Amino acid sequence: MVRRGRAEADRGATSAAPAVLGSEIAAAADGGSAARGWLRLGRDGRLTAYASCAEGLVRWTESAPGSDLWQGPELFPVEGWTGRFTLAQDSNGFVWFAGTRYRDGAPGGRETVIATQYQTGRPLGDWRAVGNAFPERRQADGGQGEPREQQEQPLPPPGDTMVVPDGAGSLHILATRFGVGVRGRTRGADGKWGNWADYQGKWVRGAVVPLVTAQGRAEFLAPFKGGASYWGQDRPGSDFRWLGRMKADAVEGTYSSYETGAGTGTYFWRHPADGGVIAYRPQAPAGSVPALLPLGGAGGAGPVAVTRTHINGYDCTVLLQRGADGCPEIAAYPTEGEQYGTWWAPVGDRCAGLPAIALDARGSVTIAMIDMDGGLLIARQDLTDPGLAFGPWCRVG
């Protein structure tokens, strides 16, 4: 593998942006506002990277498939933006965003909003409020005098809202709050929104961890201290139903997921003992390799980024993490062959927030990071090398 420092990075052309924007982007990413899976491949073969800053959503876009010339950073302001967002991509290539904004009159002073990017490089659609999964409740207390309204004991703030498009054209909004549970609302393929559904999990910690298979069936884990509940659809478009639970210690906020077999997802998180990565397959057949498997990466932070590619002719799962020293580190192993172990290698200098990974239009593994100045750096797999080697980092925005 190739490691390149910032001083060695090539510089691609980029559009002009306010000088203050870079520092805001870096601060937001390092403050935990980087969305998982923030590097995405569009249907036209161009990659897009997404970030946050104080004013709203930020975007960089390849000028052509596989190019080191990018457009951006472009700012899409959102009034009342809180800084945190999540995203997902459906089978049509549409990218869906969920975020939170402050608004007078909204329950608790904030509301969940969603928006859509229908084509690579095109403007986002309007941000639309989708209601509040956890409206503040009030109760009457008569006592010895007149009834009066009093606020219930305040609850911890909700976890990040996840937006999950399934293969039947339905869009699911999944929200969590410790002490209340998991609630979801679905917009059907006909465009009509249903009511909020309760998926239990009163002691849920952090956001749910969704996964949508290539067949379009959606599922998710709802983490709690010491384990997680597992929910899924029987088929795309159907309601979620409880499928079981698993027991395992995990560092809160470190879950990620990826489809590693036909209709089978693998979930990853960090063990609290050393921060090492754990893999788990809820649908692993009985008698197969044990469900909880260590993958190294001790000392890393946050969720790992995941993709799959062929290396030396073998189907491999590739993991990317922010290592103990704040630099990107990468590992690969035969898909669903965690028992063979992994070796982590550094692939860049210190980054702000979490690095991201995706396949580009050529099928080249592409890794992205935001540097400490708020710039976007890209490194691509060298396809002439039979292993997993990377070319130099290119600063594209």
Score class of each variant (00 low, 15 high):
residue 175 A to S: 15
residue 25 I to R: 02
residue 245 R to L: 10
residue 257 S to E: 02
residue 164 V to D: 07
residue 80 G to D: 14
residue 368 A to L: 14
residue 150 Q to D: 13
residue 46 R to I: 07
residue 278 I to D: 05
residue 343 W to R: 11
residue 121 G to D: 02
residue 20 V to T: 12
residue 20 V to H: 14
residue 114 I to D: 03
residue 111 E to K: 08
residue 37 G to Q: 04
residue 268 F to D: 12
residue 98 A to Q: 02
residue 382 D to Q: 01
residue 138 R to G: 08
residue 36 R to E: 14
residue 84 R to S: 15
residue 85 F to W: 15
residue 68 D to H: 01
residue 278 I to N: 11
residue 113 V to S: 06
residue 377 L to N: 09
residue 147 P to F: 11
residue 202 K to E: 11
residue 277 V to F: 04
residue 64 A to L: 01
residue 33 S to T: 13
residue 268 F to N: 05
residue 321 Q to A: 09
residue 240 F to Q: 11
residue 177 R to D: 04
residue 196 W to H: 09
residue 152 E to N: 13
residue 254 T to D: 07
residue 323 G to T: 06
residue 342 T to E: 08
residue 330 I to Y: 03
residue 169 G to K: 11
residue 204 V to Q: 00
residue 381 Q to K: 01
residue 177 R to G: 03
residue 226 G to N: 10
residue 307 T to F: 07
residue 312 N to H: 12
residue 162 M to H: 01
residue 176 T to L: 05
residue 104 D to S: 11
residue 57 L to F: 07
residue 152 E to M: 10
residue 78 V to A: 07
residue 35 A to G: 00
residue 338 E to V: 11
residue 26 A to S: 08
residue 325 D to S: 13
residue 219 E to N: 10
residue 215 Q to W: 09
residue 231 W to N: 05
residue 263 G to F: 06
residue 172 H to D: 06
residue 39 L to A: 05
residue 355 P to K: 11
residue 382 D to E: 00
residue 314 Y to Q: 15
residue 262 A to W: 05
residue 236 P to V: 10
residue 103 R to V: 13
residue 156 P to M: 06
residue 175 A to V: 05
residue 363 G to D: 04
residue 375 G to Q: 06
residue 310 H to P: 03
residue 188 G to E: 14
residue 122 R to G: 05
residue 15 S to M: 14
residue 225 K to W: 11
residue 190 D to M: 08
residue 44 D to H: 09
residue 93 G to D: 10
residue 124 L to C: 02
residue 357 I to N: 01
residue 236 P to D: 13
residue 364 S to I: 03
residue 299 G to W: 01
residue 308 R to G: 06
residue 305 A to V: 05
residue 41 L to E: 03
residue 397 G to Y: 03
residue 67 S to T: 06
residue 58 V to D: 10
residue 31 G to K: 12
residue 182 V to M: 00
residue 131 G to W: 00
residue 34 A to S: 15
residue 217 R to N: 08
residue 269 W to R: 03
residue 395 R to F: 01
residue 10 D to L: 12
residue 342 T to R: 07
residue 34 A to I: 09
residue 392 P to G: 11
residue 118 Y to S: 15
residue 271 H to L: 06
residue 243 L to N: 15
residue 153 Q to C: 05
residue 210 P to E: 05
residue 319 L to K: 14
residue 312 N to I: 07
residue 37 G to H: 02
residue 229 S to M: 09
residue 249 D to A: 14
residue 166 D to L: 03
residue 48 T to H: 14
residue 239 D to C: 12
residue 358 A to D: 12
residue 135 P to H: 09
residue 229 S to W: 11
residue 23 S to N: 12
residue 289 V to K: 12
residue 137 R to A: 10
residue 217 R to F: 01
residue 162 M to C: 04
residue 334 P to A: 15
residue 90 D to F: 07
residue 61 T to M: 02
residue 291 A to L: 12
residue 129 A to K: 02
residue 314 Y to D: 15
residue 269 W to Y: 07
residue 151 Q to G: 15
residue 66 G to Y: 04
residue 244 G to C: 02
residue 50 Y to E: 03
residue 199 Y to K: 07
residue 148 R to L: 00
residue 108 G to F: 04
